[in-house]
Amino acid sequence: MTSPQPTPSHTVGPFYGYALPFPGGGEVASADRTDAVVLHGHVYDGAGAPVPDALVEMWQADPDGDLTGAPGSMRRDPVDGGFLGRNGVDFTGFARVATDAAGQWSIRTLPPGARPGHAPYISVCVFARGLLHHLFTRVYFPQDAEAHAADPLLASLDPDRRETLVATADRVTGSYRFDIRLQGEKETVFLDFQ
């Protein structure tokens, strides 16, 4: 038997905004978690202009490194069919946020735990009008510099490209910034899983 051939990708287009994003899509950590971190950034195109119609999805391990995930990222209300938000108990590990008119996105999540042999990271999938096939990248965190030296992906990259995958910490707010540059100077490293 020949294996089936993959269905081709297509762009998300400009009009997904009423279909894919959902309220609380970036609130991965429940409100009472004091160890939650805010991660934010902009998406830029090859001219350095912000991309106002990108969709950013993130997937990660919980703080213990567990990747089981949990359902309920987009919990629905059986009464009126609207969105209920996460249940405040389970950690789903999944975020989905659209960029705003300034090309900015943000999420609030728990710090990911490390997997054996890897520095901790959050996996990112970027969609946008104009992008015919999504792009994968990763967010690593600046405080893990020691683990980065041994991480199989980071260790394989030139230092100037490696730094596109490491968020910068804001000492005042405690948040992390991670910009995604689709093209050109300081172009983000994008990944191909084989």
Binding site: D45, V51, Q183, E187
Partner: peptide, 10 residues
């Protein structure tokens, strides 16, 4: 303006 020029990293 929305596609990477660098090859993807395997």
């Amino acid at each position: 303006l929305r596609h990477p020029r660098q090859p993807l990293v395997p």
